[in-house]
């Protein structure tokens, strides 16, 4: 949406991996294997070696099927989870390994909006308390009046009536609650926002209101977004670039027009062919055979090979690296070999 102001990335994600250990207690971990009792740990490999950058003013959207690791990636960037390995670099400074104290200045620059505005707002706090608390925490020097003024200004910007100040979240509709959580993210004047399915729980007519708000705020405040969504029509509408994930791996990253007009990775092709189109005759979809494997037992080689029409022996053995092309980056042997 907004013009790119310069080429220095705001955020760099380098080889980020996030595995969850779900082994349970020691007894659960003991397994009989090859004639011996061994301790076996069970890892959910939610995000695996993901690398990308976001330029200031961009909207980078992350898409992919349920469980492919979109939220985990967003949370790892926000340090809600500490990445298992890899680096997150914000304005040239590595932030993934900072202590909570050193992280504080970055917390206000980097904010997150969640899918379920109800679950993410404290039900016992009024709208005013919800918004004033983070302002006070991050600006100990601000006077009461300044805090109040700042909160009122933000409320107005997101289209909420300041008279609603003393009401509680449950007294609002879903769309209004999402406005409150967007206001809470904006009230610290952030530069970067991770929006994880911010409109998924809302009705169509309300979705348009919230998308407009996000786009307006980006223009007014020069915001940069990482936008997570499974609604590909919305992604097509608001993104600068799109990153496609499958089983915790990045398949393809490219500018939005390029991805939608000329998808290269076989998974991207299948995903985009499945979008229902308004007023369109039912097109033939690229059928994906098989089932999505679990991120506990990742397939060998290319993680997509079990469902890919173009898979060959190399795909089953060797993991395709993500390779730079004229228009974007793709991780696929067939594309690299120019088979497709």
């Amino acid at each position: 949406m907004a013009e790119q102001t310069n080429d220095t990335p705001l955020l760099q994600v380098r080889n980020v991996t996030k595995h969850f250990d779900i082994s349970g207690g020691l007894l659960d971990q003991l397994k009989w294997k090859e004639g011996k009792m061994r301790r076996v740990r069970t890892l959910v490999k939610a995000v695996n070696g993901v690398t990308f950058r976001i330029l200031p003013g961009e909207t980078l959207s992350v898409v992919g099927e349920s469980g492919c690791g979109k939220s985990t990636l967003g949370r790892a960037i926000m340090r809600i989870h500490r990445p298992t390995s890899g680096e997150v670099i914000y304005r040239g400074k590595r932030v993934d390994n900072l202590s909570s104290h050193d992280m504080k200045p970055y917390r206000r620059k980097m904010q997150m909006v969640f899918q379920d505005p109800y679950a993410s707002l404290n039900p016992r706090m009024t709208v005013r308390q919800i918004l004033e608390e983070p302002v006070r925490f991050h600006n100990p020097g601000m006077s009461r009046d300044e805090v109040k003024e700042h909160v009122l200004h933000t409320l107005k910007q997101v289209g909420l009536d300041p008279d609603w100040n003393n009401q509680f979240p449950h007294e609002f509709s879903g769309g209004q609650r999402q406005r409150i959580s967007i206001a809470r993210a904006l009230v610290l004047d952030p530069e970067f926002i991770v929006a994880d399915e911010p409109i998924a729980a809302l009705d169509v007519s309300i979705q348009a209101q919230i998308l407009n708000l996000l786009m307006d705020m980006q223009q007014k405040r020069d915001l940069t977004y990482l936008f997570i969504s499974h609604d590909l029509s919305v992604v097509e509408h608001i993104s600068t670039r799109v990153a496609v994930m499958y089983l915790g791996h990045l398949c393809e990253v490219a500018p939005v027009k390029e991805i939608f007009n000329n998808p290269k990775h076989p998974y991207t092709q299948a995903l985009l062919s499945a979008i229902p189109r308004l007023g369109g005759k039912k097109k033939s979809h690229i059928r994906l055979g098989g089932d999505v494997p679990t991120p506990i037992n990742l397939p060998s080689g290319c993680v997509f090979h079990g469902r890919c029409r173009f898979a060959d022996e190399r795909c089953r053995q060797e993991m395709p690296p993500i390779v730079e092309h004229a228009t974007g980056r793709v991780a696929c042997h067939a594309v690299e070999e120019e088979r497709i």
């Binding site: 099927e65 349920s66 499974h230 590909l232 299948a270 995903l271 062919s273 499945a274 979008i275 229902p276 979809h285 059928r287 994906l288």
Partner: peptide, 8 residues
């Protein structure tokens, strides 16, 4: 369901 499965 996911969009690929929805389509199917």
């Amino acid at each position: 369901l996911d969009v690929t499965i929805q389509a199917e």
